[in-house]
Lab assay of single mutants.
Amino acid sequence: NCLEGLIFVITGVLESIERDEAKSLIERYGGKVTGNVSKKTNYLVMGRDSGQSKSDKAAALGTKIIDEDGLLNLI
């Protein structure tokens, strides 16, 4: 459970895995996936064609922004 207690938001199109697979992977390792960035969000996983508003909010809140490889490296 290397992601225990961590909260993730996924945005954009992921290249190597589907969004549902990424969500399942995060949950399997103890993390939680939500739909919107908040002060409780630990990581924003940004894929291709992701919206600017979520990354702006993450930056404003100090949320770590990672890509798909960054997510896989956490596991």
Rank of each mutant, 00 (worst) to 15 (best):
N1A: 07
N1H: 02
N1K: 11
N1V: 05
C2G: 03
C2S: 11
L3W: 01
L3M: 05
E4Y: 07
E4Q: 11
E4R: 09
E4G: 01
E4L: 01
G5Q: 02
G5M: 02
G5Y: 15
L6A: 07
L6S: 07
I7W: 10
I7S: 14
I7T: 14
F8Q: 00
F8C: 00
F8R: 03
V9L: 03
V9Y: 02
T11N: 10
G12S: 02
V13L: 09
V13N: 15
V13D: 15
V13E: 15
E15I: 07
E15M: 09
E15F: 05
E15C: 07
S16A: 08
S16R: 13
S16G: 12
S16N: 13
I17G: 06
I17K: 11
E18I: 00
R19D: 06
R19Q: 11
R19A: 11
E21A: 11
E21N: 08
E21V: 08
A22Y: 09
S24F: 09
S24C: 11
S24Y: 10
S24R: 13
S24G: 10
L25W: 05
I26P: 00
I26W: 00
I26G: 04
I26R: 01
E27M: 07
E27S: 05
E27G: 03
R28W: 05
R28Q: 13
R28T: 09
Y29C: 13
Y29W: 04
G30S: 03
G30R: 01
G31P: 00
G31L: 00
G31E: 00
G31W: 01
G31H: 00
V33L: 08
T34R: 11
T34A: 14
G35I: 14
G35M: 10
G35P: 14
N36R: 11
N36I: 12
V37E: 02
S38D: 15
K39S: 10
K39Y: 07
K40R: 11
K40I: 05
T41L: 04
L44V: 10
L44D: 01
L44A: 02
V45P: 02
V45S: 01
M46E: 07
M46T: 12
M46A: 12
G47S: 06
G47V: 11
G47C: 07
R48V: 06
S50D: 09
S50V: 09
G51H: 15
G51Y: 14
G51I: 13
Q52T: 12
Q52M: 12
Q52C: 12
S53M: 11
S55A: 15
S55W: 13
S55C: 15
S55E: 10
S55L: 15
S55Y: 15
D56F: 08
D56Q: 13
D56V: 12
K57C: 09
K57Y: 11
K57I: 14
A58M: 07
A58W: 07
A59K: 11
A59T: 12
A60Y: 08
A60S: 11
A60P: 08
A60W: 05
A60C: 11
A60H: 08
A60G: 10
L61G: 07
L61K: 09
G62L: 01
G62N: 08
G62V: 01
T63M: 06
K64C: 07
K64G: 04
K64Y: 02
I65E: 02
I65C: 08
I66N: 01
I66V: 08
D67L: 04
D67M: 02
G70T: 07
G70Y: 07
L71M: 06
L71T: 02
L72C: 06
L72I: 08
N73S: 11
N73T: 10
L74F: 03
L74G: 03
I75D: 03
